[in-house]
Simulated assay, not measured.
Amino acid sequence: MVQNKTDKHPKLIRLPEVKRRTGFGKTWIYTLIRAGKFPKQVKTGLRSIAFIESEIDEWIYKIISDSRNHI
Rank of each mutant, 00 (worst) to 15 (best):
M1E: 11
M1Q: 05
V2R: 15
V2M: 13
Q3A: 10
K5C: 00
K5M: 04
K5G: 01
T6G: 12
K8L: 12
K8H: 11
H9V: 13
P10A: 09
R14P: 03
R14I: 13
P16Q: 11
E17P: 02
V18T: 03
V18S: 05
V18I: 02
R21P: 01
R21E: 03
T22C: 07
G25K: 06
K26A: 04
K26L: 00
K26F: 00
W28L: 01
W28K: 12
Y30G: 07
T31D: 01
T31Q: 07
I33T: 04
I33G: 02
A35H: 11
A35C: 05
A35W: 00
K37P: 06
K37R: 14
K37F: 02
K37T: 04
P39W: 07
Q41T: 03
Q41P: 02
Q41L: 08
G45A: 13
L46I: 06
R47S: 15
R47A: 15
S48F: 09
I49L: 03
A50H: 09
S54P: 03
E55K: 12
I56N: 04
W59R: 06
Y61Q: 14
K62S: 12
K62R: 10
K62D: 09
I64N: 12
D66R: 05
S67G: 12
R68F: 04
R68K: 14
N69M: 11
N69C: 02
